[in-house]
């Protein structure tokens, strides 16, 4: 599996650290709703198919990326910088 890093080009996924599901949004830090935090911290859609996820290019440019990858074929459809989600 290779990830086409917007800064470094296609690199082996071994250079990246996995950051999990990127489709979730963290509740506001002042939010005291237990259900929303429970959902954010513990529950996942865990789809079989397209999955939007974070990868950190730990052994490269150290940028956080958002990757759209298929969890069955491992095919990567899109890679973008997590910051502002700039598409490459």
């Amino acid at each position: 599996m290779r990830i086409d890093c917007p800064c470094c080009g296609p690199r082996d996924h071994d250079e990246f650290a996995y950051g999990g599901d990127a489709s979730r949004t963290m509740p506001d830090i002042a939010d005291t709703g237990m259900e929303r935090w429970f959902d954010h911290v513990f529950l996942r859609d865990n789809p079989r198919g397209p999955h939007k996820e974070f990868w950190h290019h730990a052994h490269g440019c150290r940028q956080w990326l958002v990757v759209e990858r298929d969890t069955v074929t491992h095919e990567i459809a899109r890679v973008a910088l997590a910051r502002g989600e700039v598409s490459r």
Binding site: G20, D39, F42, L43, R44, N46, P47, R48, T71
Partner: peptide
């Protein structure tokens, strides 16, 4: 490993990843 796939069919979100 497919607990999540079947749970999704009844609208259950599970505390797990495959």
């Amino acid at each position: 490993g497919h607990s999540g796939v079947l749970a999704q069919k009844v609208g259950l979100k599970l505390p797990l990843e495959s």
